[in-house]
Design a protein around this nucleic acid. Structure first.
Lengths: 200, 200
DNA sequence: GTCTATATATCGATAGAC
DNA sequence: GTCTATCGATATATAGAC
């Protein structure tokens, strides 16, 4: 499906398209818009990509793979015997990704509907696999008997959702560093798993 | 700017446009699509609305007003002297709105970028006012000395963001009622304000 | 208040020269 | 690998009859 794209121009197209799709939206960005930003004419785009949707899918798939990859790398730094340590590592990796790859995150968060039905299904599947990682971790935390949540599924959604929005407001040149940001969310997530009677 | 729209057809247009804009997106929905669903031809739409964007703005403004209104009504049932009681009431009202008005919530969550610059600015302003309500409540909770958060601004974002997604996954005919759902998020939010040392 | 006809613009994509 | 020219479809919106 996806071509090689090892040349400079293809890389330029991907870079420009990611930026424009994420900020203006897929429908509001034309092939001609992307071409102009790259410095070529519209029809030349089809030498590098078979269709506009293929560009979107290529970007979406790459972003989702990177998100999963970020966690797979981070998990080695967590204590496998301590579920809460894994939760902390997961949240930190998740926050870091959304803060450091804001454009890619915003694309995945807002442009999935413009994918073909097949690619949309695949994207949702990849997202589900990522969610399952966190579900497994939270379940392991609960199994220790030291943690408690009102509802497993809803709590997992809540943790994932609160970090997703980082991509839309975080300012890398602001006062908050990525590591500090990760610590804030790490603490919030751990608090959410605290036994119910711990708060007044 | 916005017309009266007291007639049946205008109400039909609003209902149909809300559904289509929220599910397919503003750009992917044409004036003709809406007209066909209502049972008229495209040009007849302009007897009821001055432009396509006016329909979107009308729907967006109504939804944002209803969100604020839901909280303004709910606040009377909270104990004004107990900030934590206000937090609980806010979260419950917020969850209920996103679960009961899913289509409106999804519209506001995904189609703001298609508004004119002026209307977009107004929508963001209305959203900020809503966020400020929660900020004030959380600040009051912290002022009692009985609660603690790692970062006020980020925590407020986190609370608001975790409920926003409800509109995209909640199933009203599923096993979880709105009241139960509200209780889950209420508990999660209160936990997030617990003193840091309460969790192992 | 709805219609047909149409103006005007832009879209994704293709054909074929260079 | 990029170009010009263009196809065919579709978009928002308007004009004017009924």
């Amino acid at each position: 499906m996806t071509r090689a794209r090892l040349d400079e121009t293809s890389a330029d197209i991907s870079r420009v398209a990611l930026e424009m799709f994420a900020t203006q939206g897929y429908d509001a960005t034309s092939i001609r818009d992307i071409a102009a930003a790259v410095g070529i004419r519209g029809p030349s785009m089809y030498h590098h990509f078979a269709s506009k949707e293929e560009i979107l899918w290529s970007l979406t798939e790459t972003a989702l793979k990177r998100l999963a990859s970020a966690w797979h790398t981070a998990r080695f730094y967590a204590n496998a015997d301590e579920p809460i340590s894994q939760l902390r590592a997961f949240v930190r990796a998740d926050v870091a990704f959304h803060a450091e790859h804001r454009t890619e995150a915003n694309l995945v968060n807002s442009q999935l509907k413009s994918l073909s039905p097949e690619h949309y299904a695949r994207a949702v599947e990849m997202r589900s696999e990522y969610e399952l990682e966190l579900t497994t971790i939270v379940r392991a935390c609960l199994a220790t008997g030291k943690y408690e949540v009102p509802d497993l599924r809803v709590t997992v959604f809540a943790i994932l959702q609160m970090t997703i929005a980082i991509a839309s407001w975080y300012d890398p040149v602001g006062p908050l560093g990525v590591s500090e940001l990760a610590s804030i969310y790490e603490e919030l997530a751990v608090k959410m798993l605290a036994p119910a009677k711990s708060s007044p």
